[in-house]
């Protein structure tokens, strides 16, 4: 049986004026339902492009993305997105921002509002429902954004460097919260990040991308027990895996000790 999400020979090229720039070159990989996949790779290697292709917000130049066997040819709506910026609408309160999801989908207002409040409470934002985004810290804003992405209980959660702009402590906490939410729901997650630590901590599987045009340089399974605690980072398994991934980047020339 075919996998839940299939990237099949996906190529994305942009016409930049002075020639064609290939961001992603014949990329193929599959995801099982309920799998948490992290993608790490250098900046500008086309990771975000892949996410947008999965969401149907951009079309591959050649190749296909399929979900449950159906090719994605238009915006795929059974999916939640979290961008690097929280992308909250500044004139809406936290609750209203989460409710945007329901308003556009025209679901039952009372039901989704109860759900929105419950989600906000789960990420520690109970009591902050009526705050406006500029009254919330960066971490809180990103939590609201996460609630918005989960409100309609989507099959797939797509996260594009969601915690990249947060400070280290906030980041640790939000990773724990995300793991908790994921373990309750077991959604299929595609999580793009620059941080090897973050990828290993959160994911079942880590794909390492090469610099542009992106290819899959390595594919690691992470079989650490869940729930993973922050202390897991100190374990030899964790450190070993992080080291292996770093080595892949060193071999790719992305990381180097010597500068000439």
């Amino acid at each position: 049986m075919a996998s839940f999400v299939e990237f099949d020979q996906v190529t994305k090229a942009f016409d930049t004026g002075d020639g064609v720039m290939t961001a992603v070159d014949e990329m193929s990989f599959d995801l099982d339902r309920g799998e948490f996949l992290a993608i790490v790779g250098p900046s500008g290697c086309g990771k975000s492009t892949l996410l947008l292709a999965l969401a149907g917000l951009t079309q591959p130049t050649t190749g296909q993305v399929r979900v449950a066997g159906r090719p994605i040819l238009e915006p795929y709506t059974d999916l939640g997105i979290v961008f690097q910026g929280a992308e909250l609408l500044p004139w809406r309160t936290a609750l209203q921002n989460v409710m945007l999801q329901a308003e556009i989908r025209r679901g039952s207002k009372r039901e989704s509002e109860a759900r929105a409040r419950e989600l906000l409470a789960q990420v520690g934002l109970g009591g902050f429902e009526d705050r406006y985004p500029d009254e919330l810290s960066g971490g809180m804003q990103q939590r609201v954004s996460l609630c918005r992405a989960l409100l309609h209980d989507p099959e797939i959660l797509v996260m594009d460097e969601p915690f990249g702009a947060l400070d280290a402590l906030t980041r640790d906490q939000i990773q724990i919260d995300l793991q908790h939410l994921w373990m309750e729901r077991r959604k299929t997650v595609v999580f793009v990040t620059h941080s090897i630590d973050e990828a290993v901590f959160l994911a079942d599987r880590v794909l390492v991308f090469s610099p542009r045009p992106a290819r899959i340089a390595a594919d690691f399974r992470v079989s650490l027990d869940r729930p993973r605690h922050l202390s897991a980072r100190a374990t030899p398994e964790f450190a070993g895996l992080v080291g292996e991934i770093r080595e892949v980047f060193e071999n790719l020339g992305v990381l180097t000790e010597e500068r000439t």
Partner: peptide
């Protein structure tokens, strides 16, 4: 309006009309 905001509402299945009134207009 930020392009990411517009992408978000499109992925929610918003029509052009909804995207306009909910995001672009405000």
């Amino acid at each position: 309006a930020r392009p990411e905001s517009l992408m978000l509402v499109r992925s929610m299945g918003a029509s052009r009309w909804q995207a306009f009134w909910k995001v672009r207009w405000p």
